[in-house]
Amino acid sequence: MKKSFPCYIRTAGIDEVGVGAIAGDIVSSAVILDSKFPIFGLQDSKKISLKKRLFLYEQIVKNAYSWSIGRVSCKEIDILRVSKAIELSMIRAINRLMIKPTFIFIDGVKTLNISIPNVSIIKGDNIVEEISAASIIAKVSRDNSMVILDKIFPKYGFLNHKGYCTSQHVCALKKYGFTKFHRRSYRLKLYQ
């Protein structure tokens, strides 16, 4: 006997970026794609070139049924710690969607304790188009923020490493100290 499952007509995908960075926000995106306007070439944002990522970003923004961004600042990350910060950024992204989804696919291993049914999928950004689209929106949005930070703080090299812990970034921190856009709870790890 076959099982019947409800038909979820507004399925969102969620993904986040910036978790392992030592500067900048954690950024999540929620995307509901429109089946009338298929977007070809969606995949994990880390596996595509910058040129293709920007092209797909424009296609998603133009053609998605709904999309949004949720951010958690460095200060909030330091207070909440990473796991809770990820969850908060995802909930903010969901709450900012213009159209509420009826089901959510989440990249990774964590489900959300919210009223909308949701399931996590390991490496979902390679499997589920909505998660792939969310991955692209989140990455481009966060990278754009880091480009702006690079203009404000050019000595730190944010344009190159986007806030992640590279040798260039650690050297800049040792020389110039932390900005208000650095995660203070990560400070001890840098000098061990």
Rank of each mutant, 00 (worst) to 15 (best):
S4I: 15
P6A: 07
P6V: 11
Y8L: 11
I9M: 05
A12Q: 07
D15W: 01
D15T: 02
A21F: 00
I22D: 00
I26A: 00
I26E: 00
V27F: 00
S29G: 12
V31N: 05
V31H: 05
I32V: 13
P38D: 10
F40Y: 11
G41L: 06
K46D: 15
L50P: 03
K51C: 05
K51G: 02
K52Y: 07
R53F: 06
Y57E: 06
Q59M: 14
I60N: 09
Y65L: 14
I69C: 10
R71K: 15
R71W: 06
R71P: 00
C74F: 01
E76F: 00
R81A: 04
R81I: 03
S83W: 14
A85T: 04
A85C: 01
N95G: 08
R96W: 03
L97E: 07
K100M: 13
T102W: 01
F105I: 00
V109W: 08
I114E: 00
P117K: 03
P117R: 02
N118T: 07
S120H: 09
G124T: 13
N126P: 01
I127H: 04
E130C: 08
I131M: 09
A133V: 10
V140C: 01
S141H: 09
N144H: 06
S145F: 12
I148Q: 08
F153R: 04
Y156V: 15
G157W: 07
G157V: 12
F158K: 15
F158Y: 12
L159I: 11
H161V: 09
K162F: 02
G163R: 04
Y164L: 12
Q168I: 13
A172H: 12
L173Y: 11
K175Q: 14
T179P: 03
T179I: 00
R183E: 04
R183M: 05
L190K: 03
Y191T: 11
Y191V: 11
